[in-house]
Amino acid sequence: MSKLIFHSEKCSGCGLCSLACSEKRIGAYSNKQGFIHVYSQPDKLAYNLEACFLCEEHKCVEICSTDALIIERDRVKFIESNCVHCGLCVSECPYNIMVFKGDEPEMCDLCGGNPECVKVCPWNALEIV
């Protein structure tokens, strides 16, 4: 599996990545219903981008007591048969990136290796390695 890398110095904050992601996921536009969020940081005169970069805490994986989430090849993988639908993984995600699909968690799978967010970025601020 590939890894998503963010070059913050190149990012303009336009959020086209978030729209491309939501378009693919829900067939409409939202910068909260995709797996990549961009928002203002007014006092820093900048924008922040959050996505699943596989944070060091792995909180979603750590909190899951039934091993429904595991780390596999640098991504969080969902094992549906183990899920008891407690929702703790979604609520524990420090970046609010993991979402519910029905009563199960849904997470970024990098569009199978060719992510829409990377494709639409006008400034090559997102990269897949």
Binding site: S12, G13, C14, G15, L16, L19, A46, W123
Partner: peptide, 16 residues
């Protein structure tokens, strides 16, 4: 320092 853009705009005319 760096450039910024309005939402969904690829032009990025603004600069810090």
């Amino acid at each position: 320092l760096h450039h910024t853009a309005c939402f969904a705009c690829p032009i990025s005319c603004s600069h810090v």
